[in-house]
Design a protein around this nucleic acid. Structure first.
Lengths: 325, 325
DNA sequence: ACAAAAGTGTTTGGGATACACCCATGC
DNA sequence: GCATGGGTGTATCCCAAACACTTTTGT
């Protein structure tokens, strides 16, 4: 929406504040709690980081506004956004009186891509947040308080992890949100006793074929790992890595073998490994790809569980759901 | 604030919603949870009941607005108002797009007088609420949900009772809010174990001199009960009854003996007793006044306690305050 | 083979529940 | 003296914390 070519004006008998929504999106990378921020492209606070959000339209509720802005600025489609509170300080925006209705939400870390338009969206570790625009640092503190409270009674954790997860992953998440340490064994029992976890049958989550010992991987054919010209591989994990990385450049087109190699190289280079090509050093490539696969599977030892939402809703009705630690 | 003689207009490039606050005030009459409502004097929904509230001004925060409107419309000065949430349905007000920021608060039932201006304010039992204006019935349901949750972790009850209260009163309050029954003895222990109650020394809370046996009261001089011409009595309870009842008509003036008699008569007549005057039937009057005093003291048997706010804040810091039932 | 982490079982102390009992007050 | 309700004590049960042990997995 451009701020120019506006001939219309809107007049009122009494002054009206502007109303915006802001959305604090939490994620979890396996170690730390993360927050999704966007870099502001316009004044005020141009170049600073802020929560996704924007002005409410006259035909949408606050929640609809929050979801729309989130989609427009970060590409995220989230079904659950929870209201955090309103921030109505008189001078919180230099342009005019702006009241912000803040929401918070939870996203699987892996599903986030950059924003669709010029806006840059990025995950930040909770302990390493930059200076924020407006009063967003205050809003963040409130959001942190809130998530720490909600996690005791609501299934906060499950929206942050992949659909299938191990209990150890869940524990790491709880520990990093609450900043405490739990006894592993008691955590197991308590979580299972809640009854909201259902075990995933082994066959439902087949391990990717490259999962396993590194030695075996070296013996695989290069085509199997990096795919044929149609871009299909037999490794779902490498597949999903490439798909999400490539999504910003092509829209739904198949990924060629060469592109796939470039992507993997680029990704691996972030770990400060030297670049390789498929032809020059297939063995090295295998190794790195295997490392990439395995690093995605870190902590992925053990039984997988899934959140049973029906059962949770049922228990919530009867008001006997508690997650005390 | 009148809606006429406005020459000024306020123009904006983009449409702005109007923003109001609404305040759900809970009280407790010893038996039931009550809600404070005002009768609307203007369209829309003229004549219907609604929560106190109004449009936000450009130089006040939402919370300040809520407190101001509460004061203007009901005479209540409350220090703690807690945010409940925003209600942003597109068509919730027929005039224009109005977003409401709702608060909820707790008031000692006895301290409420009628509104200062034409607005009628009245307590309603929670089970007997009339049809409400706007979406206020929905807001009320949300407020009920919220208070039921908050009562477990926050000292909700203490703001609803008098400063000094018995544990039995506190239990009745908890039971009526949560709609359950507790074992009296376990409730005692749990409440005392929290450590936030401090015992009131007997001499700190002298019983009013008319408290006690009805026979004794009959022997008292009429001047003692209804005061001299300056309007002073020796019964603090009758004193406070008269002061609060008279407040809407005179502003701070002393209450004469005759007015006091009228007030007491009027109050007693609500119990469908015949009117009496001081001269005609002083004995009857004594009796009725004594009944009024005693009815105020119902349940006032037993040790009195007081909420220790410092200790609560201290425990809240350490995050080890729980009131589970 | 060894280390590390997953998964399961056992003990135990403290708090919640369900009672019994005594005392104070009012009629 | 009897009824009502306030105040305190006690036995039982269950759950949460602490810890031991076996199995699995990766190198």
């Amino acid at each position: 929406m451009s701020i120019d070519n506006h001939t219309e004006v809107y007049t009122y008998k009494y002054p009206h504040p502007a109303v915006t929504t802001d959305c604090v999106v939490f994620g979890f990378d396996g170690k730390e709690l993360m927050v999704l921020l966007i870099e502001r492209g316009l004044e005020p606070y141009k170049g600073m980081w802020a929560f996704p959000g924007g002005f409410i339209r006259m035909n949408e509720t606050a929640e609809e506004c929050a979801r729309r802005e989130l989609r427009e600025e970060t590409g995220l489609e989230l079904d659950k956004v929870r209201e955090l509170g309103t921030f109505s300080g008189v001078n919180r925006d230099p342009r005019e009186r702006v009241i912000s209705i803040a929401f918070y939400s939870l996203a699987r870390h892996s599903t986030v891509r950059g924003g669709d338009d010029a806006v840059k969206a990025k995950w930040w570790a909770i302990d390493d947040i930059p200076q924020l625009a407006f009063d967003h640092d205050y809003i963040l503190r409130q959001a942190m308080k809130r998530i720490r409270q909600d996690i005791h009674f609501e299934p906060v954790g499950f929206d942050l992890l992949d659909e299938e997860f191990t209990i150890a992953e869940l524990q790491r998440l709880y520990e990093s949100i609450l900043g405490v340490h739990f006894d592993r064994r008691n955590f197991y029992r308590k979580m299972l006793q809640t009854g909201v976890l259902e075990e995933v049958e082994e066959e439902e989550m087949p391990r990717p074929i490259y999962y396993g010992k590194q030695k075996e991987m070296k013996r695989m054919d290069v085509d199997e790992l990096f795919g044929d010209t149609m871009g299909e591989t037999q490794s779902p994990i490498i597949d999903s890595i490439c798909a999400s990385e490539a999504s910003s450049s092509h829209e739904g087109n198949a990924i060629t073998r060469e592109e796939r190699i470039k992507i993997i190289n680029k990704l691996l280079n972030t770990d400060s490994l030297e670049a390789v090509t498929c032809d020059s050093a297939p063995d090295t490539m295998y190794e790195k790809a295997a490392t990439a696969e395995r690093s995605r599977s870190v902590g992925r030892k053990g039984k997988l569980y899934r959140f049973n939402e029906e059962k949770y809703n049922q228990m919530k009705e009867d008001d006997n759901f508690r997650l005390e630690f």
